[in-house]
Design a protein around this nucleic acid. Sequence first.
DNA 1: CTGTTAGCGCCTTCAA
DNA 2: TTGAAGGCGCTAACAG
Lengths: 344, 344
Amino acid sequence: MAEPARVSSMADVATLAGVSVSTVSRALRGSELVSPETTARVQAAAQELAFAVSRAASSLATGRLNRIAVLVSGSLGAWFNGTLLDVIYGCLHRRGYELMIFRTFSAEDRDEFFATLPARRNADALIVASLELTGAQRQRLHDLGMPLVYVNQTVRGSASVAIDDVAGGEVAARHLINLGHRRLAFVRNHPRGGHNHSSDGRLTGFHRAVRAARLPTSEQVVLSGSGNADGERIVGQLLAQSELPTGLVVESDELAFSLLAALGRVGLRVPADLSVIGFDDHAMAATFGLSTIAQPLDLLGHEAAALALALVDGERPRRRNVTAPTELRLRETTGRPPEPAQPN
Amino acid sequence: MAEPARVSSMADVATLAGVSVSTVSRALRGSELVSPETTARVQAAAQELAFAVSRAASSLATGRLNRIAVLVSGSLGAWFNGTLLDVIYGCLHRRGYELMIFRTFSAEDRDEFFATLPARRNADALIVASLELTGAQRQRLHDLGMPLVYVNQTVRGSASVAIDDVAGGEVAARHLINLGHRRLAFVRNHPRGGHNHSSDGRLTGFHRAVRAARLPTSEQVVLSGSGNADGERIVGQLLAQSELPTGLVVESDELAFSLLAALGRVGLRVPADLSVIGFDDHAMAATFGLSTIAQPLDLLGHEAAALALALVDGERPRRRNVTAPTELRLRETTGRPPEPAQPN
DNA sequence: CTGTTAGCGCCTTCAA
DNA sequence: TTGAAGGCGCTAACAG
């Protein structure tokens, strides 16, 4: 940049408007203390210079960053992350807050985050989204001394917003059972080592429904891939069964899509031969007619943002731990099982 | 927050380490001027206090924000935005830069952005991603006096990274023509009023291929929906034709998915009755076997970030206008036309 | 209603 | 190799 092209600051605006810097500061923030004429003059000057406040300087002076950090795991392009961030962005923007993103892919990323704590002193609050954390890590976040909100994860002593994965998994399975299915499978995904609370919860719900219906446990199976595109592998496991399950409860829609495509390739018809229900209500679920358990990302995002902002404002929100409802969204991939249910 | 829980600053670290603030500042940034022992002592103190630098203060002092802003249009969860942001985030993070997002949905959002210019003085550079701008708006961005990089949009006098939409559209159509198709349709999307350069370019390429092959122009049609989920409507337009096209070039994969689902519903088989090729190589394209023209988002993101960083560092990058290649990705939705091509 | 005066926490001279 | 001093641009008292 040959010519630094000095960008105007409040001092320039002040000079142009013929007032002091303080007045500019007040006027631009709409203080009642400034006369309408002065305010107008200041605004005109600011406009003319295309002046924009330096948030860095302002933050330094006030101690408020006007920025909320969100820690996510996995690609920003992943459906869950992208959608959640979008909702949160909207809420924050409306309130004059910025969104700051921290992404972690690997355990190393996580370690780096916890070693450097970049959110500290650089955001007014931290939202932790769907991230599996160790106890020590949670403690460290707690010790940060900044407002903290967890999404899809309930942590003692911290604010949180989450869906009930167990209930969702239970409804998914129960709905198939009520349609007459007797042999079910739960399909899950075991990515890059480590637990996944959501997945675990959904499976727990699945088992609960199976038990409640007194279905023979031996006929209910759990299939697992190692990625959301692992449909082929799962179909392989499926076809290896002595008797094919007629209903599949899939941990997530993304995995269900892959499965659906793989089923189509081997000629299994859905739902004629096999019913499939996903989980999430991914944007593409409606397009492809996938029955699913909808997760209210809108609500999760809104509540998370609202909680964060409330905590920043020093409020004690009435409900620090919000549970958002899931909902069965029936479409075209689930139906009655192929043969009449045989009474065992 | 009952107890403000004063978070430690450099002064605290300095006290604990028994040195001056300047030394802490230098040590923490790895200055060669500080003795190894002192550095170690400072680091230990910082560690103990869980100290993190206030970027606001640091920015104010240096005049560098260490932050790049990205202006996008539409949801952060949209495939293009999410994926691009993810790539850019990675590049920036590696270089110690933050990502700051500005999202615009509507014309009003855009107006707000241009009225308040929030990126000004709050980021070191601005990346404008796939956004249709008026001349006045581009001028205003230019006048911002900050490094500017456009993605998928070429602007005179500014750095840019873009794919060749025309070439992509041409290849898509040509490939169908070479497979024997004679009646083609281009399927596009006319969202919330206004042009779309990408779409226009792809259509231009389509026409070019048609002309080069000397296909009867009257038999090539353009179908259009008003949203990426408008497959049904397009199938309606399709079935209203006196003679069905056998090959469909669809402006984007997302629209193609919706179309594919709608075609399935009316019983049209792909590619037996109809070939479909999309554009983008959306994450789901591989899953569903959609043939498509791949857009190298990775490359676009990397180059955009690299250009922005280079400009921030005052470098004159050799290539200010990068064109990224598209690539035909053949999968299962395109094949030979149903009947033998009839020589006109 | 407006101006003056001090910092906010860090980085960068300049001295030592 | 380290410390002291000043200032980045803004806001928040405190005067007037």
